[in-house]
Design a protein around this nucleic acid. Structure first.
Lengths: 140, 140
DNA sequence: CTACATCCTCTAGCGACTAGAGGTGCAAGA
DNA sequence: TCTTGCACCTCTAGTCGCTAGAGGATGTAG
């Protein structure tokens, strides 16, 4: 068993070095063994776990959701209902976020198109921001 | 001139009371005058400013961008090139965010569809997270 | 006069890191 | 063997945009 340094683990998993230490500090990954000189020594499985976390973070899962997903992964005989529920909830969030961003996009486009590149007093960017009634964006 | 309390200003602008105080503390709005008993007394113009800020925040502009937009609004004879640039930059951000969320949505849908509602060891949710190579999501 | 809502200041906390200070370990070249 | 220089260590504090709570003062309605 060759020793994997934190730098190597970071490179292979795509998680930054300080972030790896942070994940250890919050108990998302187990504390690895240490070398003589007190340096962290990771194992291949740790890199998989870090990659799992990184990917889940990229998908926008929160740390606590990832914690649950990780405990599920650790016990493959459990029902995957929780994992399914977490992913479904995240899907709903993402869909909602897309809808609201589309509305923002439309509004920003109106602003930018309406800007005659003149003075601020004729500028739709400022105007739309100042008077919400003029815009197409509706609220919760 | 009737005195507008912070609560009233919050209600009319849609910005919460502690947030109004926070905006004052970071200098995004001017400190209003005070009553005998040291309570804030806002003017109608302050409410417009707060509404402007709220709307800009809803559009996802950062506080520093809003600060710039507000100084532009305060001087309507300036060129609106900066306002235009800020809005355009935000538009690009929003478009990119939408694209990446669409990719996430596709990936989450694959995960959820593939989940056979059985054990974790057959669950695509966990599997896709564990092995990024299987998914369609590509990176920067 | 007494409730009670609203206001005040101040500090600390949130999530998920990131940056920096100040120090130690380790491998490779001279 | 020594030294250079990078990678590692711990710890604290900062980021953003608020939000929550403590502990107290003010203002208003009955």
């Amino acid at each position: 068993m060759k020793k994997i340094t934190i730098g190597e683990a970071a490179r292979q998993s795509g998680v930054k070095v300080p972030t790896v230490r942070y994940y250890e500090s919050i108990g998302l990954i187990a504390a690895p063994s240490r070398s003589e000189g007190n340096q962290r020594s990771f194992e291949p499985a740790d890199i998989n776990r870090l990659a799992f976390i990184r990917h889940a973070r990229e998908l926008g899962f929160e740390i606590e959701a990832i914690r649950t997903l990780l405990t599920l992964q650790d016990d493959p005989h459990q029902s995957c209902a929780s994992a399914d529920a977490i992913a479904k909830a995240r899907l709903v969030e993402v869909e909602q976020r897309i809808r609201s961003l589309m509305a923002l996009k439309a509004e920003l486009e109106t602003m930018v198109e309406g800007c005659g590149h003149g003075r601020v007093d004729q500028c739709r960017v400022i105007e739309v921001l100042a008077d919400h009634g003029q815009c197409t964006h509706s609220h919760h």
